Simulated scan of single mutants.
Amino acid sequence: MTPSQTRRYFGIGLVAALIGAFGLVAEDVVEGETKTFDDAVLMSLRVPGHPEQPIGPNWLPEAVRDITSLGSYSVLTIFVLLVAGHLLLVRRRGTALLVVLSVVSGSIISTVLKTVFDRPRPALTGVAEVFTASFPSGHSLTSAVTFLTIGAVLASTTESMRQRIFYVGSAIVLTLMVGLTRIYLGVHYPTDVFAGWCLGSAWALGCFIIGNALARSRHLGDTTASLTSGRIV
Rank of each mutant, 00 (worst) to 15 (best):
S143W: 05
S143F: 05
S143L: 09
S143P: 05
V145P: 00
T146G: 03
F147N: 00
L148D: 00
T149C: 04
T149R: 02
T149A: 04
T149Y: 01
I150P: 01
I150R: 00
I150F: 06
G151D: 06
G151N: 05
V153Q: 00
L154S: 06
L154D: 03
A155L: 07
A155Q: 06
S156F: 06
S156D: 15
T157S: 15
T157Q: 12
T157W: 10
T157A: 13
T158G: 08
E159T: 12
E159W: 12
E159H: 13
E159G: 15
S160R: 15
S160K: 11
M161N: 12
R162T: 13
R162E: 12
Q163F: 13
Q163Y: 11
R164H: 11
R164A: 07
R164W: 11
R164L: 07
R164Y: 12
I165M: 15
I165Y: 15
I165P: 12
I165A: 13
F166P: 09
V168R: 00
V168A: 05
V168K: 00
V168Y: 06
V168D: 07
G169H: 05
G169Q: 05
S170I: 13
S170H: 06
A171I: 03
A171D: 03
A171Q: 01
A171F: 01
A171C: 06
I172H: 03
L174S: 02
L174I: 09
L174E: 02
T175N: 01
T175M: 11
T175I: 11
M177I: 13
M177N: 10
V178R: 02
V178T: 02
V178W: 00
G179K: 07
G179A: 10
